[in-house]
Design a protein around this nucleic acid. Sequence first.
DNA 1: TCAATGCTGTGCATTGGTGCACAAGGTGGC
DNA 2: GCCACCTTGTGCACCAATGCACAGCATTGA
Lengths: 294, 294
Amino acid sequence: MAQPAWDEIRTAFQVARLGTVSGAAEVLGVHHATVIRHIDALERTLGTRLFQRHARGYTPTEAGRDLLIVAQTTEEQFAQLSSRIKGQGEAVAGELTVTSISGIADLLVPVLASFQEQYPLVQVRFLTDMRVFRLDYGEAHVAIRAGAAPEEPDNVAQPLTHIRTGLYASKSYVARHGQPKDESEFANHRFVCVDNEANRAPFYRWLRSTVPASAISFRGTEPAAIEEAVHQGTGIGFVAAYKQKVAENLIEILPPRPEWDAPLWIVTHVDLHRTRKVQAFLTHLKEAAKSWPV
Amino acid sequence: MAQPAWDEIRTAFQVARLGTVSGAAEVLGVHHATVIRHIDALERTLGTRLFQRHARGYTPTEAGRDLLIVAQTTEEQFAQLSSRIKGQGEAVAGELTVTSISGIADLLVPVLASFQEQYPLVQVRFLTDMRVFRLDYGEAHVAIRAGAAPEEPDNVAQPLTHIRTGLYASKSYVARHGQPKDESEFANHRFVCVDNEANRAPFYRWLRSTVPASAISFRGTEPAAIEEAVHQGTGIGFVAAYKQKVAENLIEILPPRPEWDAPLWIVTHVDLHRTRKVQAFLTHLKEAAKSWPV
DNA sequence: TCAATGCTGTGCATTGGTGCACAAGGTGGC
DNA sequence: GCCACCTTGTGCACCAATGCACAGCATTGA
């Protein structure tokens, strides 16, 4: 059976509420002829008269009074929904989902924590995973990406910072295997590397072309695992420069090189970029990034 | 602030529910371009994105999910309302309001009672008052009118029966004042009459032109009061012939005349006439009228 | 009793919404 | 890796819903 048009129900609601076609037309901002036609159409689809017509207006029948009650609550529900949604665009509240590459959680988590503290109505979700979360599927409001500038058409990308990376070994490793003077001695050392030939990080491309595969003694997928392996003395590996500054345990084998730098990008979906919530987080993030170690 | 169109909310609801514009278009029976335009318009009035657009469909944002929940219940409410109203036209239930001229309650009340017994879901309201209840204002489903055939354009009138009226006096009156042989003796008797010069009942017009005003000793507005006055012996008065048959107390002064007959009409508003509830009552009433005394 | 007001109802011109056709792009199966 | 399919998105033609003007009617007040 054919469902009635919701607009016609709203028209009938106003007629039932006000008692006249003219009054309903004025409230709805349409011509009174339109109101009459809506009522006629609605009654035709329902197969019942909703109103008694007379010269002083429309008096609702039982069915019309029934509709009045139902549509009354609908009107209120929609009004609440409308103001809620309108306010939502302006309020910094609700969920904020941030995704990033693995390995910089120690940088982001404090930022997220202080943001949540500043905006207590916000519930922060921080997603990190091997796979890339997709902004266009609504999986996250903000993504932190590394590498070349993202160029998806619906995404807004802004530069955040650069991650400088150097080659490090732990003191325990150097104590056992010594410290290579230059690249010619690399073949006799042990290295820690990412377990992914397709990894496009410039320093890993450099590593794959410089160090023989036989010298790679440990491979891991998780950046945290690789770092931990370096710390444990399993081998020489790449660690973000800012982490080495904090860790007393690491010895610099090769200092960071400009060509190893990985730019970090803030990426948002264009649909969400202009909302106040996202904007608030972006400014908070950029402000926090100013004090990050480099 | 501009309220969103309810149809657009319904469109957005189906998109949020199904996840694709195409699917929503199919369910709604419109072109998918229309769906896109509805969403665009709705988002423009709300000032917020409701969906993330991508190649596999539309993913609702927070606002979209909020709308989904509200509109979901609205959809259910309207579906219930629709089937309720559609069924209401076919079901014999709810209120049935009947109005009639005063004075034939003793005929109608048994009909109403048996009708209610036959259709227990019906709540009967029986309105009698000096003023005429107006069908076009929705004051009653069915009216019993007397006199000339009603000719209001929106009313459906059907003949029901004729009320034959005669001139009667109680035995106590005759015992005291005797019984007039013909109209020439009327001036020396006492009469009971309606207290309304404008009353257009043919027998009262005859009374006003035949009996001098000085002979009218009792006037009342309520037919029951007039009858009671006749029974009490206050004077000679008009009583419906069928009532005289039941009452042993009354003596016929003048027998009913054809020109005094008052036709009774069943009148319904055209908007309600074709509903099953009204039809059921009309057949019930006509059936009962067959066994009425004449 | 008559004029004034406010309501519904309807034919006609118009505008805004709808359907159509096609393009472009992503996804998944073979 | 390629092709088929399904999705969104847009310009154009068209039709239907809308607005307008006027008629008709009931009610109200003088």
